[in-house]
């Protein structure tokens, strides 16, 4: 290393350290520790006296796999990700197409309106929606009664609680994806549409053969971000249902929180967190593979 190189490396280190040290100590180190923790029986006794800690191998993971509650939480989380995620992406794309249409005047006004729920505090709007979902006094059932639909006990009925949470979550986050879709739409050269119009292609065919294919990378990004976010659902059930009714909205993160921070079964909770991590990783790799295959 020459003196110049050493100087460059040194100043790089000084500039990087204030950000990378905290990230290493407060993120990477805990992630590694969580992996180790998941192989121990860390519980409330170990919290008081570390000598109580024992290495238990895969016992926590085996216990998870044998726990009906964990499978329920896993099923609920997949329900939320697989129904809520695509729904959110579809509505975001629809909103982006509307706002970005040539005919729309004042697009930025509509964009701001659709985006407003994104910046709100999840806990606060979850509280608001709890009241909107009230079976008797809620605005939603009142609106539906105009359409002749009988009142639904949104958060009290085991079959309706998850759809209710999904509806709220989609309302809260579709504006974010919409912005990314608008950016993607604006990157498509307008000449393509002009040429298609001259050839007499219908609006649907233009959408199918120009918009969708050219939106590919944006689609992948939006789908990935949405999936990762939806896998981490926590505040929605915490505020709106506490995981009920009959555990039908209990998510993996909520289960991890209850086990880890209410009952202090930190080894067991870490194992649950790691299962979630592996699922997110698998989902990411799967989507990248699928899209990669589509392109080639």
């Amino acid at each position: 290393m020459t003196g110049r190189e050493r100087h460059a490396a040194l100043s790089a280190g000084i500039f990087l350290a204030p950000a990378l040290l905290p990230i290493a100590v407060f993120f990477f180190l805990p992630v590694l520790a969580a992996l180790l923790l998941s192989f121990t029986d860390f519980d409330i006794y170990a919290l008081g006296d570390l000598n109580r800690l024992r290495f238990v191998g895969f016992a926590n993971y085996l216990q998870l796999l044998q726990s009906p509650l964990f499978w329920t939480a896993l099923g609920n989380t997949f329900y939320f990700v697989l129904v809520g995620g695509p729904l959110s992406v579809a509505i975001s794309l629809g909103a982006a197409l509307l706002v970005n249409s040539r005919l729309t005047r004042f697009p930025s006004l509509f964009r701001t309106a659709f985006f407003l729920p994104v910046v709100t505090t999840l806990v606060a709007v979850a509280v608001v929606w709890r009241y909107l979902y009230h079976p008797r006094y809620g605005l939603l059932n009142y609106g539906l009664s105009w359409l002749g639909i009988e009142p639904i006990d949104w958060l009290g009925d085991p079959d309706w609680a998850m759809p209710a949470i999904i509806l709220m979550a989609v309302w809260k986050n579709f504006g974010f994806n919409m912005i990314i879709f608008i950016a993607g739409l604006q990157n498509i050269p307008p000449q393509l549409y002009e040429a298609a119009r001259i050839d007499g292609a219908s609006a649907w065919r233009q959408f199918r053969h120009i918009t969708l294919p050219l939106l590919g990378p944006t689609f992948l990004f939006v789908a990935l971000m949405t999936m990762i976010g939806y896998f981490q659902m926590f505040a929605e059930p915490y505020v709106m249902t506490q995981g009920g009714p009959a555990n039908r909205t209990l998510s993996v993160v909520l289960l991890m929180y209850e086990e880890g921070f209410r009952w202090w079964n930190m080894g067991y909770a870490s194992a649950a967190a790691f299962v979630l991590f592996v699922l997110i990783l698998a989902g990411t790799v799967l989507q990248l593979k699928l899209r990669g295959g589509e392109r080639s």
Partner: peptide, 16 residues
């Protein structure tokens, strides 16, 4: 590393 959900770190972070 951005795909690692923050919740994975939370239990050891609390102990730390």
């Amino acid at each position: 590393a951005m795909v690692i959900p923050a919740q994975v770190a939370m239990l050891p972070l609390f102990l730390l």
